[in-house]
Design a binder for these strands. Structure first.
Lengths: 223, 223
DNA sequence: AGAAGGATTTAGACTCGTCTAAAAACGTCC
DNA sequence: GGACGTTTTTAGACGAGTCTAAATCCTTCT
């Protein structure tokens, strides 16, 4: 049974979860960078989380989430994404703002409120940026994705999700209609820098390399 | 311009505001009791608040809010009560629960969200327990009130607000229909203990002394 | 295999918010 | 006007979370 975690513990747990999804074994340096704290702080928090049996910590060897740690992290993800949905859909706040607000709210919203959001919003399956919302049991669908930047010339795909942490980028996406559900087709690739000419909603649109790496579409990554 | 206050500072500020409304000059002991902390903690927080120019602190003489301190406190009250309204009206959470939840939320809800609540709820004038919500300029209507326990036999009045911090009491009120807006008439007074027989919605209802002291109705307190 | 270089951990300090115990001030009562 | 009891403040400690600087460990390269 998870006694109340401090906001700081929750932030670390979430960062570990995020990075663990990508590769394996998360290091002190990874988390320090991800959270913008010193490596020393990260080490001491790793010890604290290990004491609470939320991670397994090996000196000089990073951490992995335990089942309890993963469950807490997934709960946090659910809170965060439902809060974002609430903020955009019911309060009509702009999608480039809600991530920041949800980062604060996720530490303060009790389960009752989260479950009411879920009901009121009709059990949404993704956050406003397209990221899937875990269900109340912590189940999260696996989705095959690749960055828009990986599409070959002439390929078509549907946007599944976009990187949500950079407000400027999100405003740029909104302007150009790059949002989850939209169909895109790569018309032309600029070989040197990697800029793309993409048809979004039929309209030809220039997409910078950084932006194209932050938009994810359906399909398997090439082996 | 009020830089971000810590949750603890906000709690103290709010407690000072609450007690200042009653009498004058709030003492260390008052706040220690109100917040359930030691007198020593209260002294050191008084110094911190004084340094931020939120209160005027005199050694051994308690504190009074400055204009900035009062403005912050009223902002907090607005956040808290709008959050309560939101929780009952939009999320359908029970009125005995929302005070506790709003106590956490009031430290995390940014102004954008509060103002959206206000709009979405159509600028409510009171919280679910009948307490007035300050407007965005911090204006708060003065209302003449007295406790139900002060009514003479045969008197009639309208419930304006009820004490909101005791969930058990609130469930008791809900059961008996004692809520803001209801008309009540004192049918009989029990002189020794102070129990009342009150007509609520036409139905005769026995009201304990403690409960009667926690329900406030319109009218001037006798001089 | 040893040394260089990078990552991690330890050591020590700081702030915030809390506590208990002791000291100081206040105010009241005779 | 002094003595006593209450209130407030001071002193000192602690935990959480952070930092910087120093020490230590790990890895890799020659």
């Amino acid at each position: 049974m998870p006694r109340e975690l401090s906001p700081a513990m929750e932030d670390y747990l979430l960062a570990i979860y995020r990075l663990e999804s990508d590769d394996r074994r998360v290091t002190t340096g990874d988390i320090a960078q991800e959270l913008g704290v010193s490596a020393a702080s990260t080490t001491s928090m790793f010890k604290r989380l290990a004491q609470e049996r939320l991670v397994v910590y090996r000196e000089y060897g990073g951490v992995t989430l335990t089942e309890a740690g993963r469950a807490s992290a997934i709960g946090l993800v659910r809170r965060h994404r439902l809060a974002e949905r609430f903020l955009t859909d019911l309060l009509a706040l702009p999608w480039d703002d809600v991530h920041r607000i949800a980062d604060r709210l996720e530490h303060a919203l009790p389960p009752e409120v989260i479950e009411r959001f879920d009901g009121l919003l009709n059990h949404p399956r993704t956050c406003p940026h397209g990221h899937p919302i875990p269900d109340a049991q912590g189940e999260l669908p696996e989705r095959a994705m690749r960055p828009l930047s990986a599409l070959a010339e002439g390929e078509e795909a549907v946007i599944l999700q976009v990187e949500e942490r950079d407000p400027e980028l999100l405003r740029y996406f909104a302007e150009r209609g790059l949002r989850p559900g939209r169909r895109v087709a790569v018309l032309d690739r600029e070989p040197l820098e990697g800029a793309l000419l993409v048809a979004v909603n039929g309209r030809p649109t220039l997409v910078s390399p950084r932006a194209a790496a932050s938009v994810f579409v359906n399909g398997e990554v090439e082996a």
